[in-house]
């Protein structure tokens, strides 16, 4: 049944993932099986568990970045429901543009483009015009405490924390209904962590759903509406 409940943005059902390492004689590495959870509008679901259990893998499957082994990943798209596990490349690209936003753990640096332009481009992609996009980008970077003198510089030479803030700004610049965050506060200081927490709270209030992982217990406690313990889906012992 491809239906979601009224408020559900994301439903993961029976998700499993196994890696096959052909370079090591085809060794199979099962990671997860039977993962199931939902994310509703306005709520933040945090994936928890020990390092290496597969939290990131779940996020990446929800994004279409990793292939799904078994299971379904249902995403609300207005009246329609898409199963990302079965969607083709074009549909996934479309979903990433309109529905699912992403803040990765590391900023993949594009040479020559200034920080503010990276963020403004994301805002533009979601439909804002050039001027409005730039304003939004500026306001996000300001909130995240990125010094203005850095705005026009390409992030290649930024510190880890500065790069991460550009990453976060980019992820929040659009109008996605579902945001996936992979360790967004790992390299931030207390003040900037607070800024992120505030941003999340604001978006939640506007109906955005969050699926995230946080290394930081403190942040997790402050933003999570529900915590999913991934270790109960883990295949690691079995392997």
């Amino acid at each position: 049944m491809n239906a979601l409940h009224a408020n559900e943005l994301l439903r993961v059902e029976g998700l499993s993932k196994t890696f096959t390492l052909h370079l090591h004689g085809g060794a199979r590495l099962p990671v997860l099986h039977g993962v199931s959870f939902t994310v509703a509008a306005g709520e933040c679901v945090v994936l928890a568990g020990p390092s290496g259990v597969g939290k990131s893998s779940i996020l990446k499957m929800a994004l279409g970045n990793y292939l799904v082994g078994e299971g379904r990943i249902l995403v609300a798209d207005g009246e329609r429901v898409i199963d990302l596990a079965r969607a083709d490349a074009r549909e996934i690209l479309d979903a990433r543009r309109r529905i699912i936003g992403y803040v990765s753990q590391f900023l993949r640096v594009i040479p020559r483009i200034g920080a503010i332009d990276i963020v403004a481009a994301a805002a533009q992609e979601s439909g804002l015009d050039r001027a409005a996009a730039r304003e939004r980008a500026a306001s996000l970077l300001a909130r995240l405490g990125l010094p203005e003198r850095l705005w026009s510089l390409p992030p290649a030479t930024f510190s880890g924390g500065e790069q991460q803030r550009v990453n976060i700004a980019r992820g929040f610049a659009g109008r996605h209904r579902l945001l996936i965050l992979d360790e967004p506060t790992a390299s931030l200081d207390a003040a900037n962590r607070q800024a992120v927490i505030d941003l999340i709270a604001e978006r939640k209030a506007r109906g955005t759903g969050f699926l995230a992982t946080f290394h930081d217990e403190d942040v997790r406690l402050r933003v999570a509406d529900r915590v999913v313990d991934v270790s109960r889906f883990s295949d690691r012992e079995a392997a």
């Binding site: 990446k60 279409g64 970045n65 990793y66 292939l67 490349a89 996934i92 690209l93």
Partner: peptide, 10 residues
Amino acid sequence: SGLTDRVLDD
């Protein structure tokens, strides 16, 4: 074949 990031990452 597939999405570029998918083919390269998985």
